[in-house]
Design a protein around this nucleic acid. Structure first.
Lengths: 199, 199
DNA sequence: GTCTATAACCCGATAGAC
DNA sequence: GTCTATCGGGTTATAGAC
């Protein structure tokens, strides 16, 4: 958790997160990170065991926060449509608040996940899938979603459309994350076609 | 263009494309490519100037083919809804026929684009944007799409949802590219909500 | 068309001085 | 907490033999 006055360790992690997000984990060298922090590469190892432990701390901290929010939504008593909307909104908020962490997860999770140390990434992926599939199935059962949806395909559609926005969304420029979520929820639920022309 | 009997050069490019797609361009070594081809890394330089020239040939060949298809759609006389559908279908067909090329473009175009040699990647990006925006605006003007759409946001939504499917779609396994396109077009145009509950 | 051998460089990480 | 100095290994690419 970040405090009002970030520790040196947190400063370094923030610098590393930005570089990992911009250039990719593998393509960012410890010298890049040290340069951006104004120190030499060897000095980084006073704070961290390895480059891997840096990205590990970045990702696990972020995911613990995000999945706490998903759990709250699943436990709420709203209808499926409202819960789906909230889950989309929480995700866009995460892109707004933690764009670097989301970008690293999107770009490097597959590669990192092949190391046993990052096995929790696959677990979180499964957990995320369960959240969305649960909401979609509840929506189909209760009649707020079309009953002919392919659940797996719909899950992938929602997951991808939400998280891939990290590629172009820039906090503080143009639309807010809330505006983007509004439009995305509208397209997702009602489509882009003129309803009167609905086939 | 690939011939019935691929040349050694084409064989090597196909091997490289698969590895670039699986591991990323930077994370694939010339030794990886040579190993997979059953030769030594030095021997690759009899066929190609550099690793960069390999990915260059892979991407430019693919894009020349894809954008030829987009041009045909734009020039056709169908209505905007039909043209949008066809553009989505052509894109999914590209994912089916050339999954490695699409994956490389999705994962590495940003990084490669920073070198002047790959300036055409940015040009193709602009061209692609013009295709989708043209179709969306024509659809809004002719009344087949909702008139309150944010054109830029809708463009990004379509672009991202289509191309990100390369992350999970595997040719020959499960749904065909045509099935996936059917479902995606339906969600995109009409949404996932039950129409009777439309707000 | 491929192999042998190697140049020139970049990488993550370490040991110990300050 | 940072710097100096460096180790061991991986990377792209080249020159010339076969």
């Amino acid at each position: 958790m970040s405090t009002a006055v970030p520790s040196r360790r947190e400063e370094l992690l923030a610098i590393a997160a930005r570089l990992f997000a911009e250039k990719g984990f593998r393509n960012t060298t410890v010298r890049d990170i040290a340069d951006a922090a104004g120190i030499l590469s060897g000095s980084l190892y006073h704070h961290f065991d390895s480059k891997e432990s840096m990205v590990d701390e970045i990702l696990s901290t972020f995911q613990n926060e995000l999945f706490g929010q998903y759990d709250e939504i699943l436990a709420s008593s709203e209808d499926a449509r409202a819960k789906l909307e909230r889950a989309v909104r929480v995700s866009f908020e995460a892109i707004d608040k933690h764009p670097h962490e989301v970008a690293i997860f999107q770009n490097d999770a597959d590669h990192l996940g092949s190391f046993s140390r990052f096995g929790y990434l696959a677990d979180r992926n499964t957990q995320s899938r369960q959240v969305w599939v649960t909401l979609i199935e509840e929506g189909m059962r209760t009649g707020v979603l079309r009953p002919d949806l392919d659940v797996t395909l719909t899950y992938r559609f929602i997951r991808d459309t939400v998280w891939v926005a990290v590629r172009w969304y820039r906090p503080g420029r143009g639309l807010t994350h809330s505006d983007v979520a509004d439009q995305y929820v509208r397209i997702l639920l009602d489509g882009i076609a003129q309803p009167s022309r609905r086939r």
